[in-house]
Design a protein around this nucleic acid. Sequence first.
RNA 1: GGCGGCGUGGCCGAGUGGUUAGGCAGGGGCCUGCAAAGCCCCGUACUCCGGUUCGAAUCCGGACGCCGCCUCCA
Length: 463
Amino acid sequence: MIRLFDASAGAVVDIVPRDEGRLGVYVCGPTVYDLPHLGHGRLALVWDVARRWWTFAGYDVRFVSNVTDLDDKIIERADREKATEGDIAATYETAWWAALDLLGVARPDATPHATAYVREMIDLIEELLERDVAYSTDDGVYFDVAKVPDYGLLAGQPLENLRAGARVEVVADKRSPLDFALWKAAIFGEPSWAAPFGPGRPGWHTECVVMSLGLLGEGFDLHCGGQDLRFPHHENERAQAAALGLPFARHWAHSGWVMVGEDKMSKSLGNYTTLSDLLASHDPRAYRLLVLRSHYRQPIEVSPATLADAERALARLDGLSRRFSLPAFAGPSRFTRADAISWSEEGEELRARVAALLDDDLDTPGAVAALFEALGRAHALADAEDDRAGDLANAIGVLLGALGLSLRAGAAEVDQESARLVAARDAARTRRDWAAADHYRDELVARGWVVEDGPTGTRLHRA
RNA sequence: GGCGGCGUGGCCGAGUGGUUAGGCAGGGGCCUGCAAAGCCCCGUACUCCGGUUCGAAUCCGGACGCCGCCUCCA
């Protein structure tokens, strides 16, 4: 049984899948109008970890994440750059996947695009109009939030409170400031589609309703996104499905912010770092580890100091991999299942401990702490020449792999000259010529290696 | 104004009514020819003020500070 904080319940709840043993998960993906930043990276990492873990735990996970390729911001950018909307969307979607690939985030099982679902959106809007929960104005078609009795469920407060504080700009003919655009009437020069209620283009909140229901079916298990999508985006999706009497997401989960000092990282504050900038100067695995070491709902601080911290911690994990020559356990599209592993007694104990933590609202920091404790134990066992050490180290590698974190066992390729220096150093050490041995070590260090002496002689790895 | 969250040791960051989070950094020791890696030991922290309790950082009340959402936003 897995448990997760559900925004519609306001509490951590048991996740009982619609279909036993299967999980249908929908994550609201990017609007492709600019480069992804660290916040997007965290979102992707959090749900990638969840997906991998639930798969590991035995669920057959169907993971859908959309790409919004139709939006005001894309149109604005296309205008500004004298490009087509399609070009802008294609450019930034490419950048999105490139960044996620580097982070080791597995591709979703399906990545629906808004522009491919306009027909379905039109049908849905038409039905909302027929049911009188939507109305037409000169601007387009709006959803009448007052028609949904429990509007505000995800926001955690009733409609009156939301309205009282609404900072929404007044748009002509809207019945309530909270009513949202289902359809935006065509403006010359902008992309538009023909529809019974007039030419135009869909508003943002409809695409996810159509695509999630279309690909995962009614009453799918989990709908995820960043905290900011809880309201109004997810609320508005819910409202549409509710108005049509369609069973929608059973549970709603949201990941927390990346903070810059005291502020949320955001486009509008301009305090963001793009993923490509981060990944140009840091091991992508360090960011994954940083994300894993805080709870997914808490804010995290990403700074040179916290990244350096994560990189040193990562070096310890790689050290374990080197000592025990562990194989690679994780890959971009490589998933592991616990029942496909034959667990040693040591390994099973660790697996159970980690599973208890991760099954309960994805306690990744607890799991990482348990894995680090086990790491110390594995080394200590090895120091004592206890052969359970290898089993434990292997289990640690498998479990880190289950979270999408791969370890490096050592230098993949040692060039000929370096190999010669290693041999020369080992020879010098055998004849106890310490001056020569130190000289060869200096040479190797100058070539960028970290030099370690082990039972089998000099070993190299990259700093 | 409404709703939600946060305030932990040098730093990051979990958690539980009373028994070690974990990592990084720092100190001591072991190992090593010297290193590196690794192991062992060391910090007695929890914004403040009250209250409940045998006992609270953990529960309740209040204060202060901070953040987020209520508008596009991961």
